[in-house]
Simulated assay, not measured.
Amino acid sequence: MKKVIAALLLTGIAFMQVQAQQQTPFGKSDPKAKAILDAASAKFKTYKSIKAGFSLKITTPDNKVMDTKTGTVYLKGKKYKVLLDGQEIYCDGSTTWSYNKDTKEVQISAYTPDNATLTPDRLFSNFYDKEFLYRLSGSSTHRGKPVDVIEMTPLDKSKPFFKVVVQIDKAAKNIVSTEIFEQSGNRYTYEITAFTPNAAMADNSFTFDAKAHPGVEVVDLR
Rank of each mutant, 00 (worst) to 15 (best):
G12E: 02
Q87Y: 04
Q17L: 12
K211N: 06
F206E: 02
M66C: 13
L10F: 14
F26A: 14
K76R: 12
E151P: 02
K69N: 11
D203M: 02
I89F: 11
G215H: 06
N204E: 12
D38R: 15
D156V: 02
L37D: 00
T141C: 03
D220H: 06
Q23T: 04
T103E: 14
A33D: 03
G144C: 12
F127N: 03
N115Y: 00
G93L: 00
S158Q: 13
A172S: 11
L56C: 05
K79G: 02
K159I: 02
Y128K: 09
T193L: 14
K3I: 15
A110G: 13
F132T: 01
A39G: 04
F15R: 01
E131K: 11
K45R: 15
V176H: 07
V18I: 12
I36S: 07
G185K: 10
K34G: 06
S184C: 03
K104Y: 08
K79W: 06
A200D: 13
I89V: 15
E88S: 15
S184G: 08
T119I: 12
K170P: 06
T178Y: 02
N204R: 13
L8P: 09
Q21L: 15
Y111A: 02
D30A: 10
D156R: 00
S177T: 06
L221K: 12
N63K: 12
K43Q: 13
Q107G: 00
I50K: 02
T117H: 01
D102Y: 04
K28N: 14
K64T: 13
M1D: 15
K81T: 08
L136M: 11
E105H: 07
F195L: 07
Y190G: 04
T196Q: 10
I192L: 07
E217T: 08
L9S: 07
N204D: 14
M152A: 09
G215L: 07
T141R: 06
V216I: 05
R222F: 06
G138Q: 06
A14G: 05
M152N: 04
V4F: 13
S140V: 14
